[in-house]
Amino acid sequence: MKAPKFPQQVISLAIIFAILLGGLIAARILLVPKSFGKYGHYRADAADEVASLDIKYAGYKACLECHDDIYVIKEKSNHRGLSCEVCHGAAAKHIEAPDEFVPDAPRGRGYCPLCHGYNPSRPTGFPQIITLQHNPGKPCMTCHNPHNPLLPHSPEECSACHREIASQKRVSHHSSLPCEKCHTVPARHTTDPRSALPKKPTTREFCGGCHDKNAASPKEIPRIELASHGGRYLCWECHYPHHPEAK
């Protein structure tokens, strides 16, 4: 049998095809990075490159070696949850060269209110001040040790930590009722709040004590029929006790 003779067109096409193929292979070898596709459709080395970046925050554990005195004080205080670097800024450089790079300390009145300035959106229970009214003109540190912000005396007002509730109550029909009328507050609650939570009313009869039509309470208090008003629901399922408006 005679060897197949390729027509001219096929040969030209084959050459073009070979050049394209060669080009493609060369392009792949040259352009596709070495580790591409090792674990998936990406350059595996990229993950290592990100992982090898330098850190700026050393983490509080790194401070213990030299400043454990401060750590020990802070751990027992209400600032125990705070990392050193949230106030002193990123300090990885300080760990490497403690004398050359010394971290800053927020000594002015501007920094603490980022956390402690009154803001109604903050969760209730978080200690807040109205910065302009709270001992104006003096740096916070004159009265509060930042590493142990134990209060000179415990706050007299519940509004220190429950300002949003207090300010709602102030403009409500219950403005004349002190918080303690409805909540029994253990003394410890104002110094270590979460370790001793106040009691809250639990029954309809509690509100009925003032509001039932037969209750022995001042005349001006609006009355309801305790047995029927509101059905079986607890009163505060309909009325917000800190701002009870009958509408």
Binding site: V50, D54, I55, G59, G81, S83, E85, V86
Partner: peptide
């Protein structure tokens, strides 16, 4: 955000978690 991938590899927490005062 990388979850601070460079910190994870060194056994540290992401910076945002490190500084969060209320956990």
């Amino acid at each position: 955000c990388t979850f601070c991938y460079h910190r994870l590899a060194k056994g540290l927490l992401p910076a945002c978690v490190e500084v969060c005062p209320t956990q």
